[in-house]
Design a protein around this nucleic acid. Structure first.
Lengths: 147, 147
DNA sequence: AGGTATGTGGGGAAAAGTGGGGCGTTTGCC
DNA sequence: GGCAAACGCCCCACTTTTCCCCACATACCT
């Protein structure tokens, strides 16, 4: 299973393309075939799941009961924003307009490795997010992960 | 099994034809033979099942007890609106009047990939639907998919 | 300091989306 | 039964977008 980490601020060109850091590309499983599925993430960023990881997500969703109204709505909300993109010859992906708009990404993107997914942020939005969530990390660790 | 995702707003021409996004066509199983079965969907949209998926649906319905009045009625209601359509040379399908009327689709259609089916919406009707179901996604995830 | 790998930008070919025309079949009317 | 209008179907043509490839610049490693 691919495990991503680290961060980098890359530019997004006029065609909406942005490079994926070489280190993250190296961490990609061959099963992913250089393909990601992008979706809306929490906190106004874009989640990028390698294909192999996304398959697992889809399996989860398909096991939900489509006759239940709320489940139906949830799956619809998740999938309608999902888009599959592949790395081009230069290790870039192109961001769909709908998603880069959602995340407020213009000509710069902050790329963060986060376990089984990669996150793409508007750099300013991320620093705002940091300020708003500047709780002391030590006490956060204690709260989330126990003693 | 085909897994559809993503969204696109396409035009419906004067002849009632609308294109299916190339990415969804690509996701189509060869077994479907470029053929869909359209039915009334929940929430005033049209469901389009690829032929192979529809076969499974039919199996489900035929396994219901035809001696039960309600089951009989349900199957009748579903099947009377079902219509089979095929992609033309340009990757389009033509929408039966009865269904496009039901969904309120005029000269624009919002096309949404939703797992084993494709949904066709009136764009305005969909944004209304969104407003009426604007529950916080975070809590919805928690409710539907557990902690 | 040179070579290799990485990130950035742009141009051209191919495909996707959109609209319209023509032919054959069906349907309704005279 | 014959005619005409309507409808569906298939093909063709145009426009726009997307994708792929090539070229340059910068950073890194040796």
């Amino acid at each position: 299973m691919a495990r991503f980490k680290g961060q980098a601020e890359y530019s997004v060109d006029a065609k909406g393309r942005t490079a994926i850091p070489a280190k993250m590309r190296a961490a990609l499983s061959p099963d992913a075939q250089g393909t990601f599925t992008l979706t809306k993430g929490f906190e106004r960023c874009i989640y990028a799941y390698p294909m192999d990881q996304w398959k697992l997500k889809e399996d989860e969703y398909s096991s939900l009961n489509t006759n239940d109204r709320e489940a139906r709505h949830l799956v619809r909300m998740i999938l309608m924003w999902a888009e599959e993109v592949s790395l081009d010859g230069q290790g870039r992906i192109s961001l769909p307009k709908s998603l880069s708009e959602y995340a407020g990404i213009g000509d710069k993107a902050l790329i963060i490795g986060n376990m089984d997914r990669i996150e793409l942020w508007n750099p300013e939005a991320f620093s705002t997010y940091l300020q708003e969530n500047s709780e002391d990390q030590e006490s956060l660790v204690q709260k989330v992960m126990g003693s």
